[in-house]
Design a protein around this nucleic acid. Sequence first.
DNA 1: CTAACACTGTTATTTTTTTCACACTGATAA
DNA 2: TTATCAGTGTGAAAAAAATAACAGTGTTAG
Lengths: 206, 206
Amino acid sequence: MAKIPEKTIERLSKYRRAVLSYQAAGKHHIFSHQLASLLHITPVQVRRDLMLIGHTGTLRRGYEIKDLIDNISEIIDTDKGQRVAVIGLGNLGKAFISYLNGKRSKLTIVAAFDINFDKIERNFAGVPCYHIDNLNEIIKTENITIGIIAVPTEQATEVAEKLVFAGIKGILNYSPKSLNVPPSVFLEEYDMITSLEKVAYYSKLQ
Amino acid sequence: MAKIPEKTIERLSKYRRAVLSYQAAGKHHIFSHQLASLLHITPVQVRRDLMLIGHTGTLRRGYEIKDLIDNISEIIDTDKGQRVAVIGLGNLGKAFISYLNGKRSKLTIVAAFDINFDKIERNFAGVPCYHIDNLNEIIKTENITIGIIAVPTEQATEVAEKLVFAGIKGILNYSPKSLNVPPSVFLEEYDMITSLEKVAYYSKLQ
DNA sequence: CTAACACTGTTATTTTTTTCACACTGATAA
DNA sequence: TTATCAGTGTGAAAAAAATAACAGTGTTAG
């Protein structure tokens, strides 16, 4: 299969959740225009994305939901799933954990790390919290491949280095400090302030 | 000035914070390659972005930081600033507030809303929390133009409708449910699960 | 049986974003 | 003075992403 564009990967994740809710409502098929309207994009976009992953619909009945979920899952999941750590158990880290927990998913948060001793050896929503000094060890023993950085800006660089050193495969960085990682590690960054300032910019134009 | 691309707006926000920290370190000038390396992008990208906003550097000395901050601020800020509300005072809402608070900024979070009565009439980090039933009223009296949606998925649609009805200008939506707003309201959406699944996808390829 | 219909799949086009390539320039060194 | 250097500014090209246009097709209505 040809290389799938980054934006398509993002939409696939959304398609899957959208059709899961459709499925939960008892539906078995969905048209591109229905899926499109759930995401507020165009039907062409949907069809193109599905074309790219080789999913083919049936005429007059649209896409079969079960198949579609399977196809998307085959692209974005791994067989045995991946294990995730959250570094920084402040509000943001907690938000992520409570939000992801309970969702059936191939991605499981299996550890949290913090420097605050109050939190160590405690659980948050079933996720054990360790001291950050044990990061290297736990990442390896728990076979964690993905790290979510939710620490204050000043500590982000150091945390990233530790994650890289521990052999992490991917990092999702929520600190506004852009990180420097070797190309062998996939890095995705999201900056809340940028989003807010963007909204502010376009709001003032409205 | 010609229309500024969306991606440029996002980077401007990052440039500004990057040079602020440079300025805090006592520097007065910065080269495009320095700014680029702070954000891990190319110097050309920086120069082009600054060209687009009409900021011009001085040869051999790069860009003057003070000027640059002023120029960027002129683009993305408004004179008197904008007032922001957070809807949903769970972990995510709190994360946003504690993160934005204390940052010198033209954007101020002046209200939080929740349905949980424990939280009502309380403050979180100096931000008063109201019951969501008062949203319409407070948005208007407090002159709030931007709303950040940090409520559980099921409530997102309803909250968005209330915000739109109250005359909000822009919405930053953190619920995974894509919202439907009139074109007069600017909408920016961010979906944590999508980001995580994206990292998962690229991590497995590594 | 035939025409109209309502979908999908895909090629072509357009738009947006990034990168390349290089002209230009003032400072500096010889 | 002149050559070199290290930067900026920008037209042109390339790459990525979105949109348009439309052919193809099974289903349905008559």
